Simulated assay, not measured.
Amino acid sequence: MSRGPADERRGSSVRPITERTLRVTLRTQDGVFIDAAHEPGNSPGGDLVIVLAHGFTGDLERPHVRRAASVFAQYAGVVTFSFRGHGRSGGRSTVGDREVLDLAAAVEWARSLGYARVVTVGFSMGGSVVLRHAALHRGRTEARTDAVVAVSAPARWFYRGTAPMRRLHWVVTRPTGRMVGRLGLGTRIHPHDWDPIPLSPVESVPLIAPTPLLIVHGDRDPYFPVDHPRMLAEAASAQGAGAELWLEDGMGHAEHAAGDALLARIGEWARGAAQ
């Protein structure tokens, strides 16, 4: 995966999980155990939390996830977790399908900690998950979110239009690829096809309103070209809901490419959107 502009990365620091962090194991609705952590943050107020959903092959201990959490902690409390099949979490990855249950468990835990406002921020696969989660968990449920940020998210399933996505499909769909995923990428992948095929991100977007939605995408994303974020924004507008779209000059893909300055802007947006 590519990285963002070098000037955005200068001065970046990655904080490890510290003694202030609460580390727990959550249980999802379908019985999978999920590794999660909470950092109280350095922002006054204390009623806002950002729940960070990482990309495929990430986990809550990866340096790029820790860096994003460190920046977000300047604006809110932060909950990080590892999707199923990633890191210390149980189960096997379904590459964006049942991961909605993992995010729901993390949001419910965040609310149990006393936070009144929850913003979900997802990167790549996590971006598709936060969109579907917001569409499926509306109303007064404890799993609801108050604002959504999708960074480098796909608009549609089964996209193979770029070389990185063709390689990813090989990893996910072939036995040899799944072995590479497990041994080389530290990601355990479910061997079965989706049945049924889950609601796509672009189908989910119109269902999110009136929850505030921010779509962030790089114009040099090697995985998903800019027609993906534009499709998502247009899907929101077609239903009269609308979404804020940030197309970032020179940015590549997901957490690796999101510089500290961009993460800080997302933190500011989250603080204002979840009023």
Rank of each mutant, 00 (worst) to 15 (best):
T18R: 13
P198M: 05
W269P: 02
I197H: 09
A233W: 00
S12C: 04
V78A: 06
L213C: 06
G31F: 07
V148I: 03
G267R: 07
V49C: 15
F158W: 15
A104R: 11
H253V: 04
P5R: 15
V95F: 13
L103Y: 06
E108L: 02
A264G: 14
M179Q: 15
V172E: 08
T94N: 04
T176F: 15
M165Y: 04
H253C: 11
S237C: 04
V65I: 14
I50C: 13
F56G: 00
A243G: 02
E8P: 00
T173E: 15
R117P: 03
L113I: 01
W246T: 01
V24T: 09
V49D: 03
T21M: 05
R166I: 09
R10K: 12
A264F: 10
R23T: 14
A235M: 02
E268D: 05
A257T: 07
T21H: 14
V172G: 07
E248W: 08
G218Q: 01
P175F: 13
N42H: 14
T120E: 03
E39A: 11
A257F: 04
P196C: 13
L247Q: 09
A69M: 09
P206R: 08
L168W: 06
F224S: 02
H192F: 14
R20A: 15
S43W: 09
R132F: 08
F83E: 02
G139T: 10
S204K: 01
P196Y: 11
S2Y: 00
M125T: 00
I17A: 14
S13T: 12
L214I: 11
W269M: 07
R182Y: 09
F224Y: 15
E19Q: 12
T18V: 03
G46K: 11
A104K: 06
R66G: 05
R3H: 12
P154I: 06
V202M: 09
R3D: 01
A261Q: 14
V226S: 14
L245Q: 06
D7Y: 12
A238L: 12
P63L: 10
G218V: 10
H86A: 09
M179F: 13
P63R: 06
R140T: 10
P40Y: 11
I50K: 01
W157S: 07
H192I: 03
H64S: 05
V71D: 03
R20F: 10
D35I: 01
R138V: 08
T162V: 10
R10G: 10
G242R: 10
P154M: 13
V121E: 03
L213A: 06
V180K: 08
P198Q: 04
H253K: 08
V226G: 07
A209D: 00
G218K: 04
T57V: 13
P206H: 09
E19M: 11
L232Q: 01
L131M: 08
T211K: 10
G90T: 05
Y75S: 13
F224G: 07
D249C: 03
R62D: 12
T176H: 13
T57M: 11
R140I: 08
V95Q: 05
S13R: 15
I34C: 10
P196F: 12
R132N: 03
A36V: 02
A105G: 05
R271K: 12
Q239P: 00
